[in-house]
């Protein structure tokens, strides 16, 4: 599994592969990442969906990816303390991959759902996604 990004650690995500080889992303909500009202900022769910869909594609293809589009729906921002996310690939056409993911709260209720379009980068891409 690829290394964690610094943003990943800054927010406090934890990623692992389950027994079926699927990427699972967990978040235990820290006091510094909540909103003024104590709810979960939608940006956290956006980040989870971006990471879990991108990681699922990257893990499946063993290649780096770059996000092209993300479309997300949010259902509940009540802070349940911990969240998990998983994703699946729904279409591949050349270097363009479409995946979908969902974020669940501690009671396994879906709180956000997203669909994302990602571009697969060359294994020899530089840090900006350009082939070198």
């Amino acid at each position: 599994m690829r290394d964690y990004s610094s943003f990943f650690e800054h927010v406090g995500f934890h990623k692992y592969l389950d027994k079926n080889g699927c990427v699972i992303l967990n978040l235990k909500v820290k006091p510094e990442v909540v909103s003024e009202e104590g709810t979960v900022p939608s940006g956290l769910f956006s980040s989870m969906l971006d990471i879990v869909i991108g990681s699922t594609i990257g893990e499946t293809l063993q290649l780096p990816t770059s996000t092209v589009n993300l479309n997300m729906n949010y259902f509940d921002f009540t802070n349940s303390g911990s969240y998990s996310a998983h994703a699946s690939i729904i279409n591949r056409s050349g270097k363009v991959i479409v995946g979908e993911g969902m974020v669940l709260n501690g009671e396994e209720k879906v709180v956000a759902k997203g669909i994302g379009t990602f571009k697969v980068l060359s294994r020899h891409s530089d840090e900006k996604g350009r082939t070198v």
Binding site: H10, G54, P64
Partner: peptide, 22 residues
């Protein structure tokens, strides 16, 4: 700052989404 980078060494997509949402 570097704490906002993804594994490619650029701004993480979650930050873009967070900033637009905001």
């Amino acid at each position: 700052h570097e704490k906002l980078y993804n594994v490619n060494g650029t701004l993480h997509g979650g930050v873009h989404a967070t900033m637009i949402d905001l």
